[in-house]
Design a protein around this nucleic acid. Structure first.
Lengths: 242, 242
DNA sequence: CGACACCTTGACAATCCTCAATGTTCGTGG
DNA sequence: CCACGAACATTGAGGATTGTCAAGGTGTCG
């Protein structure tokens, strides 16, 4: 149940715009968190909701960026395609994350929904105008950009140094941490084996074999489909760390 | 001649602090570029120069960050060490680049001089205070963080998808672009084969062999030492792109 | 039930790593 | 100025990991 409606009874506050930000599912996690009520109302006026079904692409590598926004629900991949057609996923966007590239004319990546997703988007130029008059928001953007940079660099260590086993284990732990908060030890991967490979720099077959091997060693269970059960988190962590 | 003095005749403007920012070699490239004269003077009061000899480390992974600053001359590596002791270089800092992590207590990387380097550093907290009262600077920081993120993600594609040949060729082109602007086709690598490997996720021996192979195919020359001559830039680019 | 996409498994080949020996460069001190 | 040593670089042989190709299995949706 990744998708969840952002809407509450619209007539609760008839003087405000419908679908108020203050009932937003990611109100506390997104960049809007620190904004005043008034600023939030202003921001709301330039934003709109977008629904993406799995596989739909919102931004293309090299194309003009017209949109930026917040992920409300679902999951998206940030990816680049190499010359030979193989794809590298360079990041994931979860609910509460900010996507797009403010203050840049062109996108450097594709942005594509992995699962059905809901976003709250703004025209890039309108958003830039809003940021110019709200310093707190620019600070939020900076904090997020720095966090994203840290995340990207942590991933670079994985891509540069880790074995297939370490990579797969690390990814599972990462996902479990972000998805599995509710369900203690089982979750549903929001991507195919191929997409896991695209993320880890591995062939699909290697991912499949490695998952099988992790299952055999008792670290995880694979109940079927894309479900994963973390059987022995400490063992998994041990594998991930090398 | 990576090192160059930032100082001019100090008594030109006796009413200003010595070693004025306005004579700084990276005045136009660093985050300070957009600042007013007055703001620049304020910033200068909280900054100081630091000289690092090759191999010296300024920030440690996991340690408190006390410093942030601009690179004036030289070159530094941003790196992380994996559990097995192998190092991954996740970024390079050239003159004009900003280093350190404002608004974060701990560094996520080591920051180490590759060549003798000169920096203009600030106490992190003092710098944060300065940023709080200068929005233009925060905007500069954001722009840089987003550019660094783009760079890191481009590198991730390399680490995830490229062959040894592609990686080495890409690195050479990258370096040539940033160092070789003056000398048209020859430059001196500021790092060892091992460090190239640390950057590319390759063993030192593979780097050495690949360089030899690129020389044999006529793309580059290796006059000796760490010198590299780009003989056929378009061939090199072709190799890099796959 | 069948078509389709996705996943698993196997055999083989290629790339790259490891280990080891040799060669080179450069700085230091006699 | 040359000789020495240490760090760095090259080269070779062999092996491990992972990619590629191909076949078959599983699940899902109409």
């Amino acid at each position: 149940m990744l998708f969840q409606s952002m809407e509450r009874s619209d007539d609760e506050r008839p003087c405000r715009a419908r679908r108020s930000c203050r009932y937003c599912a990611v109100r506390q996690k997104a960049i809007c968190a620190g904004l005043s009520e008034d600023a939030l109302d202003d921001l709301q006026r330039i934003g709109r909701k977008v629904h993406l079904t799995a596989g739909q692409t919102l931004l293309w590598d090299g194309a003009e960026i017209s949109l930026v926004g917040n992920v409300l629900a679902g999951m998206l991949k940030i990816s680049k395609v190499a010359q030979d057609g193989r794809e590298q996923i360079v990041g994931l966007a979860y609910p509460g994350d900010f996507v797009g590239r403010p203050f840049g004319r062109r996108s450097a990546y594709d942005l594509t929904a992995l699962a059905d997703s809901e976003l709250c988007v703004f025209s890039r130029t309108a958003f830039e105008g809003f940021v110019a008059s709200h310093n707190a928001l620019e600070h939020q953007l900076l904090a997020r950009a720095l966090d994203d940079l840290d995340g990207a660099r942590r991933w670079m260590v994985l891509l540069g140094q880790a074995t297939a086993r370490q990579r797969v284990a690390s990814l599972l732990l990462d996902i479990a941490q972000r998805l599995g908060c509710e369900r203690r030890d089982e979750f549903c991967l929001p991507f195919s084996r191929q997409q896991m490979g695209d993320m880890l720099g591995l062939a699909m077959e290697t991912v499949s074999r490695t998952l099988g091997s992790l299952q055999k060693s008792g670290a995880i269970g694979l109940p079927g489909g894309r479900r994963v059960e973390v059987r022995d988190a400490s063992l998994l962590a041990e594998v991930a760390e090398g």
